[in-house]
Design a protein around this nucleic acid. Structure first.
Length: 845
RNA sequence: GGGCGUUUAGCUCAGUUGGUUAGAGCAUCUGCCUUACAAGCAGAGGGUCUGCGGUUCGAGUCCGUAAACGCCCACCA
C-alpha cells in the first residue's frame, strides 16, 4: 500500500538505478519501427543548469511516449568536450594549484584535461539520473572518442579534397585571453562606452592635416594608408599624396576608396589592414602592406616601437597622452558603440590577421537552402518560424574559421614539411612531416553528432536503422552554432537531413524575466529544485508551463503547485487502491451512468492527449490531464463512486481509469507513476502500452445526463451558499433527479412538500427543484435575485437577436444554430419559472 | 538598417482551422476538519483580450497600422 503522504524523496530514491539495471531504456527491438533522438551533448565544463533540465525533460517525454506507443525508441546520450570552454576551466584550475598551464607539455596538460572530463562526466551522469532520463547508455558517445574523432578527420579530409576546406591568411576574431581564433558566432557584440579620437595626420611637406577619427588609436602603428571617398569633394585633391603617420613619423599614402563614408566621422579613415576586416579589403584593393602590431596575448609587439610590451588598452592611454603632448589630438568624442566580446572569456575580441583553416561555406549553405524548398526532405522547425533563422544564416554566412589555438580538441589532420601540406586520415609515413599544432572548433565535431554517434563513416546497422533521427530538441540560441551546422554537414555527408523535426524551446529566465546568469547570481540549480519538490514536479512544470519556442519564467510557486497536483494523484491512487478488489481482472461490465460518464471523458482525454503529444504541444497535454484528473476524476467521479464503492463495476472503473491516467502521466512524471503502477501490476510502466482511444467506451447519452446533473448540483450549491442557508431549508423536487444527486447534495432527509415560504428555483435544462428556506427575504436577497433575472433576460435578448439575424442563421454551421435555439427555449422556460416564483413571494409579502 | 517575438484577470501563462457570455494556476473573498487528499472540499469575485482601422453574420484569433517591451542578424573609422 502507498504511504499516507506523498514523499517525493522516498519515491524517487534509487529508482533510476533499478530502471537501468532492468534495461528499460535499451533500444534495439527489431520488430518495431525505430524512433531516434540524439541528446544535445552537454559540455563537460560543469553542472547542468535549469535549461538542460528543461531541454532533456522535453526529450525524455517524447522518447518515453514513443517507447510506450510501440516504437523502438533510442535516445542516444553523450557529452561534448567543449574545446575552449573546458580548456579555460582546466587552465583556471591549474592556476589555482599554482601551475602555469602553458608550462606543461601538451601531453601532460591533456592528462589533466581528461581527469577533469572524467570528474564532470560523473557529475552529469548523476544529474541525468536525478532527472530520470531514459537514455540508452549502451549507445553513449563522447565527441573526443575514437569513433567520433575518426569521423571528424574523415570530414576534414574530404572537405579539403573537395576544395571546401582551405588554409589562408585572413582577418579573424582573436581572443587575446584564450589566445585563439574564434568564429563569428563566438563573438558577442555588446554596446559599450567608447570614444572616437580625432587625430591630426599631417600632409607631407604641407602645414595641413587630415582629421582622422578612430576608436582604436593603438592600432595606428599598423596604419599603411588613410582613405577618403573618391567622390568626397573635400578631400579629392589629396588622393595620391601622403600623410605622416603620427608618433611613427612614417610616410603613408592617401588613397581614394569607397569604404570611406563621407557622412561618418570626419570622412577620413585610417587603414590598418592587419587589424580590421574592412581595412584588409581596402588594403587588398590598394596593394598595401599589412603590419601586425600586437602579440597574441594582446600586448603590443615590436612594431609599436617604444610602446612594445604594453597591454593594448594601456598603450591606447599612452598613445593618447603622447598625441596630446605633440598637439596632434584634436578632440575626444564619447560614443556608444558595439564591440565584439569573446563568448567564453568575455574579453574584447581583436580583429587580427592570422593564418587559419576555413570551411568554404557558400556551396554548403546553398545546398541547405535548396533542400529546405523540398517539403519531403527539409528540416521542419517547431515552431516553424525558426526555419527563417536558419535560412537567413545560410544566406549571409561566410567562411567558417575552424582552427583553434588550443590543446583540447581534435588535432587538425594536416602535416607540413617545408612548404608542402599533407592532409589525410593518418600521418604521412615519410620522415620530416610535422602535424599542425591546432585543434578544430568544438562545433566542427558537434556538427556531425547525429550521424557520427551512429557509426558514420561506416555504414553500420545503427546508422541504417536510426538515421536520420526523428527530432532534435534544443534552444533557439543554439541554432547558429549547432543546428545550422548539423544541417549542412548532414546534407553534405549523408545526403539527408540529420533530423526530420527540430523542436525549439526558449530560454529560462528568472521570475523578473532576466536571463539566469552567474554574474546576477539568479541561477537556480535544478538539483535543489528536485530536492525540494522532486524531479516529477520539476519536469511536469518545465514541460507544460509555456508554449513551444517561447521563454519560460521560472517560478517556484508553480513547481510547488505541481507538487500539489502530484499529491492529488497520489491520494486519488490511494483511494482507488484502498477499495481495490484484489486479484481480479478489470472487466468493464454492469456500468452505471457515472461510470459511463467518466469513461467517456477518459476516452476523449486520450484522444486529445495523443493528438497534442504527437505535435509535441505539451502545454496543451498538461492542461487536458490536469483538468481531467483533478476535476473529472477526483472531484466528480470519485465523489460519485463513494456511493457505490462496494460494487464491482465501480472498483473496476476506478482502477481502469487510474491505470490510463498513470500511463498518460508517465512520460512527464516517471517516478511517481512507476511507484503507483507497481502497486497495481507487476509489469513496468516504462515499457507498458500507451492508452488507446476506444470508441466503444463513449456513452453520449449517459455522459450528458451526468454532466447536466453535475451542473444542476453546482447551481443548487451556489444558491444555497449565496443565501447563506446553512442547514435550515427544505427541498421539493419537481422533476426526476438521480439518487446520486440527492446524495451528493446531502438532501435526502430534506425532501418536503411545497410550502408557501421564501423559495428559490433551481433549474438546469430538464432538472428542476425548489428550495424552501425558512427566513424572511432581505433586501440583499431581492437584489441578488434581480441580478440573476437581469442576467437571464439579457442572455435571452442576445440569443433572440442572434437568431433573428438572417445571415447568421444562413451562414453559421447548423449545429451551432440549433444549439442556440435550444438554449433560448431553456432560458425562456427558466425565466418563466423564476418569475412565477417571484409572483408568489410578492403576494406573500 | 533588416527581421522576429511578446502585449489576454493582481502575477505567470493557455486559448487548435474565426463560432455561445474568453480559460488555468497562484493570489483574493465566503462557507466547510465530508472516513484519498485542509498541500484539501464547495462556491464566488476579478478581463473595454495594448490602441486605431478593416474583412466577416460573427474577430483574442485573419488583414492593415501605431505603440511599448524583448530578442536575433548586419553595420559601426
Amino acid at each position: 500500500m502507498l504511504e499516507k503522504k506523498y514523499n517525493h524523496r522516498n519515491v524517487e530514491q534509487e529508482k533510476y538505478e533499478t530502471w537501468k539495471k532492468k534495461g528499460l531504456f535499451q533500444s534495439g527491438d527489431q520488430t518495431k519501427i525505430p524512433f531516434t533522438i540524439v541528446i544535445p551533448p552537454p559540455n563537460v565544463t560543469g553542472r547542468l543548469h535549469l535549461g538542460h533540465a528543461w531541454d532533456t525533460a522535453l526529450q525524455d517525454i517524447i522518447i518515453r511516449y514513443k517507447r510506450m506507443s510501440g516504437f523502438d525508441a533510442l535516445w542516444l546520450p553523450g557529452m561534448d568536450h567543449a574545446g575552449i570552454a573546458t580548456q579555460a576551466k582546466v587552465d583556471k584550475k591549474l592556476k589555482e594549484e599554482g601551475i602555469n598551464p602553458r608550462s606543461l607539455k601538451r601531453e601532460e596538460w591533456l592528462k589533466k584535461a581528461w581527469e577533469w572530463k572524467e570528474e564532470y562526466a560523473n557529475t552529469i551522469y548523476n544529474q541525468w539520473g536525478k532527472l530520470g532520463l531514459s537514455l540508452d547508455y549502451n549507445k553513449e558517445r563522447f565527441t573526443l572518442d575514437e569513433g567520433l574523432s575518426n569521423a571528424v578527420r574523415k570530414v576534414f579530409v574530404d572537405l579539403y579534397h573537395e576544395g571546401l576546406i582551405y588554409r589562408g591568411e585572413r582577418i579573424i576574431n582573436w581572443d587575446p585571453l584564450a589566445m585563439t581564433a574564434l568564429s563569428n558566432e563566438e563573438v558577442i557584440y555588446k554596446d559599450i562606452e567608447g570614444a572616437l579620437y580625432h587625430i591630426k595626420y599631417f600632409i607631407k611637406n604641407k602645414n595641413e592635416y587630415l582629421e582622422v577619427a578612430t576608436t582604436r588609436p593603438e592600432t595606428l602603428f599598423g596604419d599603411t594608408a588613410v582613405a577618403v571617398n573618391p567622390k568626397d569633394e573635400r578631400y579629392q585633391k589629396y588622393i595620391g599624396q601622403s600623410v605622416i603617420l603620427p608618433l611613427v613619423n612614417k610616410e603613408i599614402p592617401i588613397v581614394g576608396d569607397i569604404h570611406a563614408d563621407p557622412e561618418f566621422g570626419t570622412g577620413v579613415v585610417k587603414i590598418t589592414p592587419a587589424h580590421d576586416p574592412n581595412d584588409y579589403e581596402v588594403g587588398m584593393r590598394h596593394n598595401l602592406s599589412r603590419i601586425i602590431v600586437m602579440h597574441p596575448n594582446g600586448t603590443m609587439n615590436e612594431n609599436a616601437g617604444i610602446y612594445e610590451g604594453l597591454d593594448r588598452f594601456e598603450c591606447r592611454k599612452q598613445v593618447i597622452q603622447d598625441l596630446k603632448k605633440q598637439n596632434l589630438l584634436i578632440k575626444i568624442e564619447n560614443i556608444m558603440h558595439s564591440v565584439g566580446h569573446s563568448e567564453r572569456t568575455d574579453v574584447l575580441v581583436e580583429p587580427y590577421l592570422s593564418k587559419q583553416w576555413f570551411v568554404k561555406m557558400r556551396p554548403l549553405a546553398n545546398a541547405v537552402l535548396e533542400n529546405q524548398k523540398n517539403k519531403e526532405t527539409k528540416v521542419n522547425f517547431l515552431p516553424s518560424r525558426y526555419e527563417k533563422i536558419m535560412n537567413h544564416w545560410m544566406e549571409i554566412t561566410y567562411d567558417w574559421c575552424i582552427s583553434r589555438q588550443l590543446w583540447w580538441g581534435h588535432r587538425i589532420p594536416a602535416w607540413y614539411k617545408g612548404d608542402e601540406i599533407y592532409v589525410g586520415m593518418d600521418a604521412p609515413l615519410e620522415e620530416g612531416w610535422v602535424q599542425d599544432e591546432d585543434v578544430l572548433d568544438t562545433w566542427f565535431s558537434s556538427a556531425l553528432w547525429p550521424f557520427s554517434t551512429l557509426g558514420w563513416p561506416e555504414l553500420t546497422e545503427d546508422l541504417k536503422r536510426y538515421y536520420p533521427t526523428n527530432v532534435l530538441v534544443t534552444g533557439y540560441d543554439i541554432i547558429p552554432f549547432w543546428v545550422n551546422r548539423m544541417t549542412f554537414q548532414g546534407l553534405h555527408f549523408t545526403n539527408q537531413r540529420p533530423f526530420e523535426y527540430c523542436m525549439i524551446h526558449g530560454l529560462i529566465r528568472d521570475s523578473k524575466g532576466r536571463k539566469m546568469s552567474k554574474s546576477l547570481g539568479n541561477g537556480v540549480d535544478p538539483m535543489d529544485v528536485i530536492d525540494t519538490y522532486g524531479a516529477d514536479a520539476l519536469r511536469y512544470y518545465l514541460a507544460t508551463s509555456t508554449a513551444l519556442g517561447t521563454d519560460l519564467r521560472y517560478e517556484e510557486e508553480k513547481v510547488k503547485s505541481t507538487w500539489n497536483f502530484i499529491n492529488k494523484i497520489w491520494n486519488a491512487s490511494r483511494f482507488v487502491l484502498m477499495n481495490r478488489k484484489i486479484d481480479t481482472e478489470i472487466k468493464l461490465e454492469h456500468l452505471n451512468d457515472s461510470d459511463k460518464w467518466i469513461l467517456t471523458h477518459y476516452e476523449n482525454t486520450i484522444k486529445n492527449v495523443c493528438k497534442f503529444m504527437d505535435r509535441y504541444e505539451f502545454q496543451n497535454v498538461g492542461t487536458l490531464l490536469y483538468h481531467f484528473i483533478w476535476d473529472d476524476f477526483c472531484d466528480s467521479y470519485i465523489e460519485m463512486a463513494k456511493f457505490s464503492i462496494e460494487e464491482e463495476h465501480t472498483k473496476n472503473t476506478l482502477l481502469f481509469v487510474l491505470i490510463g491516467i498513470l500511463k498518460m502521466l508517465h512520460p512527464f512524471m516517471p517516478y511517481v507513476t512507476d511507484e503507483i503502477y507497481h502497486e497495481i501490476k507487476q509489469e513496468e510502466i516504462t515499457t507498458s502500452d500507451y492508452p488507446e482511444y476506444e470508441k466503444k467506451l463513449i456513452f453520449k447519452t449517459e455522459e450528458e445526463k451526468i454532466t447536466d446533473m453535475l451542473e444542476f448540483i453546482r447551481i443548487f450549491r451556489n444558491i444555497k451558499q449565496e443565501n447563506n442557508m446553512g442547514k435550515e431549508f427544505f427541498v421539493s423536487i419537481e422533476t426526476h433527479l438521480p439518487d446520486i444527486a440527492l446524495k451528493l447534495l446531502k438532501i435526502e432527509d430534506k425532501i418536503a412538500i411545497k410550502k408557501e415560504i421564501t423559495n428559490y428555483a433551481v433549474v438546469y435544462k430538464e432538472l428542476k427543484a425548489t428550495i424552501y428556506y425558512e427566513k424572511e427575504q432581505t433586501k440583499e436577497d431581492q437584489i441578488l435575485k434581480e441580478k440573476q433575472l437581469n442576467a437571464l433576460k439579457s442572455s435571452i435578448e442576445r440569443r433572440k437577436k442572434l437568431l433573428s439575424n438572417e445571415n447568421y442563421v444562413k451562414k453559421a454551421p447548423t449545429h451551432l444554430v440549433e444549439e442556440e435555439k435550444k438554449k433560448l427555449l431553456e432560458e425562456q422556460e427558466k425565466l418563466a419559472n423564476l418569475q412565477g416564483k417571484d409572483k408568489n413571494e410578492w403576494k406573500e409579502n
